[in-house]
Amino acid sequence: MLELRLVQGSLLKKVVDAIRDLVNDASFDCSATGFSLQAMDSSHVALVALLLRSEGFDHYRCDRNISMGMNLNNMAKMLRCAGNDDIITFKGDDGSDTVSFMFESPTQDKISDFEMKLMDIDSERLGIPEAKYQAIVRMPSTEFARICKDLGSIGDTVVISVTKEGVKFSTRGDIGSANIVCRQNTDVDKPEQATTVEMNDPVSLTFALRYMNSFTKATPLSNQVTISLSSELPVVVEYKIAEMGYVRFYLAPKIEE
């Protein structure tokens, strides 16, 4: 038996919208720790890891570890039927081939029930070791989204370079080239507007902008994004979900040969 109740139901909508651009089908795992997911895109270049900790839910019951294969577009269709202020309860049963979503309006005058078919998913899971990164950039998530969108209209790849001057995003395409430098800036009214650059070693890596733009679908989840870079590792683009967990995207770099 599995039962999860989330008063801030819109959060679940945002989570699904954040990842469905990258993966179509995914296996959600439920355990005492929380509701989690790890899925790779079809070309095995990018990976999304989601964690919603059990403590973040208003009610969390998970009697046994359970994996549920879901089509994210179908999930989005169901969740779109919930009002933005609705309370969402998610239920599943061992051995069942469906899950159910219940949406309650804040005043309890409308209650909707939806049942969604599960799917069999043969998912490959990767072990992601804890790592020390050469550089960690924290910046407003809307700013990062804007940069990826702007550069995406000029080129296909972005070079992200971190030096003690700040972080530079560069691209080159048929019509020309672009460089955007963001300097460390902590002198702001609100902490979420700050840009910080933590650098152990300078690093410069190239990534496909198509994937970066896909990651920015998670922007509504968090005011800040953390970009962790190391020349030996895929980049990690992390959106923290307040009091609940995170959505992390991993992307393998492009290399010159």
Binding site: M40, H44, V45, A46, L47, G127, K254, E256
Partner: peptide, 14 residues
Amino acid sequence: DIFQEVLAGYFDSK
């Protein structure tokens, strides 16, 4: 030429 790496080269399968 620039080639796209895949994740399998960095992370192990569980």
